[in-house]
Simulated scan of single mutants.
Amino acid sequence: MQLNWEGVMPAVTTKFTADDKLDLDLFEININAQLDAGVHGIILGGTLGEASTLTNEEKSVLIKKTVAIVDGKVPVLMNIAEQTTKGAIAAAKQAEADGALGLMMLPPMRYKAGDEEVVTYFKAVAGNTDLPIMVYNNPVDYKIEVTLDMFEKLLEHDNIQAVKESTRDISNITRIINRFGERLKIFTGVDTLALESLLMGANGWVAGLVDAFPKETVAIYELQKAGYIKEALEIYRWFLPLLELDIDPKLVQNIKLAEVYTGIGSEYVRAPRLPLAGERREEVLSIIKKGIATRPQLPDYKNLSQKAVLS
């Protein structure tokens, strides 16, 4: 299957049982909800996937299970978030062996690498896998920025093909397009800037609240792509209070709680995380319940004709 760098790709949560094992049955329910909504890929092992708490064996199980569930409908990508170059290369090779068709990749974890170290790190992994790579650029949370000058060097590798743009600087999308054209595909990685980013030319959306609200997320993408901006805006404005749950330190717990109330997840997280409790849980629940109570009726977003744009 060809990996097309476009559309909505959920950064899916990892489902756990009450005794802290992988809940593959509930995981399958959620993945099928994503597929039914029309997502364009599945990304495993990101921040929302609680990657830092997963064993290598669990990551392999999740890739193989997801590949079996999607059955060729969409590509499966694995996030690489490792402390060493050696570990990142091994993780990339394992993901490829397990059936992943692409990688999302963070700079080195824990150690705050310099620019040349980051470039060398990405190049080393790219040179040891045939899988296409999306660089996850999130200096806000991970304290390392992959600059355009660094991308200039990285793009010497044909399989470095996309960026998950999470700098929170909306104008960076235009800078990337002006510098690299179609050579570097752009995915917005911040839910609260998603529609703005798509309208500025981003090719896709690595989404978070999609885990609980898959149809609404895909509808926004498809509507704006077809030129139905007003209709996309109406859904996006309804969605924004929920999307803000993604830019919170407790984003995993927030989104898992939302999954409970839309019937496609559970609150179980892996320690040291704990489920939301007390006043904050009630605040998040209030946002979720209001969102569900006012959920918009969606158009037939899977069968849109291209809207004519008057010049």
Rank of each mutant, 00 (worst) to 15 (best):
P139T: 06
V146D: 04
A95Y: 07
E96K: 13
G87A: 04
D115V: 13
G99T: 02
G201C: 03
S305D: 14
L77D: 02
F151A: 12
S305E: 15
P107Y: 01
L193P: 07
M150K: 07
F16R: 00
Q306Y: 13
G72H: 11
K164N: 14
T217P: 02
G46M: 06
F27V: 01
L103Y: 04
G263P: 08
Q94G: 01
L35Q: 04
L62I: 00
Y221F: 15
L193I: 04
E259P: 09
K15L: 12
D300T: 05
T53Q: 01
D71G: 09
F16E: 00
K290H: 14
N30G: 08
A162K: 08
T47V: 10
A33I: 08
P132Y: 07
I186P: 02
V260H: 08
V146S: 11
Y228T: 08
A91D: 03
V74K: 11
I176D: 05
R179K: 15
A97D: 13
A202G: 04
L3P: 11
I264W: 01
G201R: 11
E28V: 09
A232Q: 03
V76C: 07
T14M: 00
T84F: 01
Y111T: 14
E234H: 12
T55A: 00
G127M: 07
E279Q: 13
K21T: 09
L101A: 14
T84K: 01
I29W: 03
T294F: 07
A271K: 07
A68F: 11
F122G: 04
T147R: 04
V284K: 04
T47Q: 12
L155C: 02
I29Y: 05
G87W: 07
D300R: 08
S197I: 02
L274K: 10
A232Y: 06
A95R: 06
D130F: 10
Y228V: 02
T294G: 02
A18S: 14
L48N: 12
V218T: 08
I288F: 07
K230S: 15
N172C: 12
L193A: 10
G263A: 05
A202L: 02
K123N: 14
E222L: 05
P75R: 06
T13I: 13
L35D: 04
S60A: 06
A162T: 05
A293Q: 11
E279P: 07
E182M: 08
Q34R: 04
I160R: 09
N178F: 09
V74T: 09
K59L: 00
G38K: 05
T55V: 00
N79E: 11
I89Q: 05
F239L: 02
L148H: 13
E58R: 10
K230P: 10
I43T: 13
R168I: 14
E244L: 12
R179G: 09
A51F: 00
A81T: 08
T17D: 04
I89T: 08
S311W: 13
F122V: 04
E50T: 01
E244Y: 12
K302I: 02
P75W: 03
S197G: 15
V140R: 12
D211V: 09
L131A: 03
I160E: 08
L198W: 11
I133P: 04
D23K: 00
G72S: 10
L240V: 15
S305A: 12
D141S: 15
W5Y: 14
N56S: 08
M200C: 12
P275V: 07
K15T: 11
M1K: 12
P241T: 01
A90L: 14
A126R: 06
